[in-house]
Every structure is written in C-alpha cells, then in structure tokens.
C-alpha cells in the first residue's frame, strides 16, 4: 500500500511542478506587467505545492530522498503528471485555458482530499486550496474575457480548445495506484468530481461563448509515465544542473 500512496503523492506533486515550470516560462514575457506578475504568482504557488507533496513523499520513502532528488533525479518514464500540464504554453490564450482546466480540477480534488484519512495529504490539500481557488477565479475570468473579447481572441480560444481538450479525459481516468488508494481511503475518487468539473467548465465556456467539444478521442498515459515528446525537453532544462554536477549542493 505504501508504494501506491507514494506514487499517488508523486502524481500530485508532478502535476504541480510541471505546470509551475511551464508557467514560469512566461516570466518576463507576459502581455502586460500586471499579468506577468499574476502568472509568476501562480507558478510560485504551484512550485510551493509541489514541494509540500515531494517532501511528504520523501519522508515516506526515506533512504536519503528529498524534494530535490524527486524533482531532479527521476526520468521522464518515472514522472506521473497528466499530459495536459506538460503541453506547450502556446499563446496566452492556450496557457490560460490549460490553467483553467487544471485549476478547476485541482480545486475539486483538493476540496475532497481535505477530508480524507491521510492527515498529511489532507493538510497539504487544505493549504493549497486557497491558492487554487484564486487560480480558478483568475483563469475563469481570462477564459471568459478572451472567448468573448474580439473576433481574434475568440478564434484563438477555439484553437486552444482544439489543442488541449484531448488531454482532459486523462484527468478522470484513475491510474492503478490511484484506484488502490481510493479503496484505502487516501485518494479522491475521480468519478465523484467529474460531474462538477464538467458543470463548471460548461458554465465558464458558455459565458465565454465557447463550445464544449463532444466525442473527442482522448490521449492518456502521463499518469503511468507515458508522456508526450515535450516531457524530455522539460526535464532536460529543469534537471540540467543536478545532472551536470552530481551531488553538489546549491
């Protein structure tokens, strides 16, 4: 059971880290200074969440594991984040849509996780929930603003949906370690939050004048370590110094 729980925690941590890493690419390049700051804030929150999860996983693993060995010394096949978070930033619209889809998910997930029996996980979820609630509000507003802004922004949002929607199915497809943890009462059953996620997404899309796609073939695998080609590049950048100078302290 312990290994399943560790895998589940790593999955939560990897989601937060990889999305935080992607968002960080915007730092200094945002469309306007205030939004540059907001995006960096979200990135910081996510990296903070990832650290909490990694530290917990490391304490369960023992044997010298730390937040950094987990983030910097695992390979792409060992990372368990969803495919959605590793996708390219694309334009501001695509980044914001990705954020909305994930924040909507994380908000529901952390809300449910707060009352689960693993006290440590519940505490991290509770702490992260305030942040994620803000991310959700901020990204919802942007999806609406861009969907209902100009013809160009509307077109760009349609394209973003076309690019990203195919990765949303994976959010609700439990990995084996997840199912085991659900049975044990330490993980959130995805089936219980799926309806609410769809409802909220539908609400925001409808206010934005954007269609919710139907019958899209979903791509999955990230949670089991089968990623898109982008993942290797993300890790090459992320892990460069730890790989180039093994065992150095920074």
């Amino acid at each position: 059971m312990k290994q399943e729980l560790i895998n589940y925690i790593l999955h939560l941590a990897d989601n937060a880290l990889i999305l935080g890493q992607r968002n960080a690419e915007w730092c200094g390049h945002g469309p306007v200074l205030e939004q540059d700051i907001a995006m960096t804030n979200i990135s910081l929150d996510l990296i903070g969440q990832a650290r909490n999860f990694y530290q917990y996983a490391a304490s369960l693993l023992g044997e010298g594991a730390t937040e950094d060995t987990l983030a910097y010394l695992r390979t792409e096949r060992e990372f368990r984040n969803c495919l959605l978070v590793e996708q390219h930033n694309g334009d501001w619209g695509q980044t914001l849509l990705r954020q909305f889809l994930i924040s909507n998910f994380q908000q529901l997930l952390y809300t449910a996780l707060q009352t689960h029996k693993d006290r440590q996980l519940a505490a991290i979820a509770e702490k992260s929930l305030k942040e994620v609630t803000y991310h959700l509000r901020w990204s919802s507003e942007w999806v609406i603003r861009l969907g209902d802004g100009t013809r160009e922004s509307h077109e760009r949002m349609l394209k973003a949906i076309d690019t990203l929607w195919r990765y949303t199915g994976e959010l609700f497809e439990p990995a084996a370690y997840e199912t085991a943890c659900v049975q044990d009462g330490t993980a959130v059953s995805l089936a219980t939050i799926k309806d609410e996620w769809q409802h909220k997404t539908g609400e925001v899309f409808s206010e934005a004048g954007l269609p919710v796609p139907e019958n899209i073939f979903m791509l999955t695998g990230g949670k089991m370590g089968k990623h898109t080609e982008q993942m290797g590049y993300i890790l090459a950048e992320l892990q460069y110094l730890q790989r180039a100078y093994p065992n150095a302290q920074w």
Binding site: A24, I37, E237, Y240, L241, A248
Partner: peptide, 20 residues
C-alpha cells in the same frame, strides 16, 4: 527554468516578480 533546486527556483521567481 534551470534553477538547481526547488528552493532556488522559488527564490528566483519571487525575485524576478519583485522586479516587475
């Protein structure tokens, strides 16, 4: 994106954000 530890990454992000 290449900061050598998660702590250093957070510190650097916060710093650059301060500059903004």
């Amino acid at each position: 994106t290449r900061a050598p530890s998660l702590k250093r990454k957070a510190i650097l992000l916060a710093k650059v954000q301060d500059e903004a």
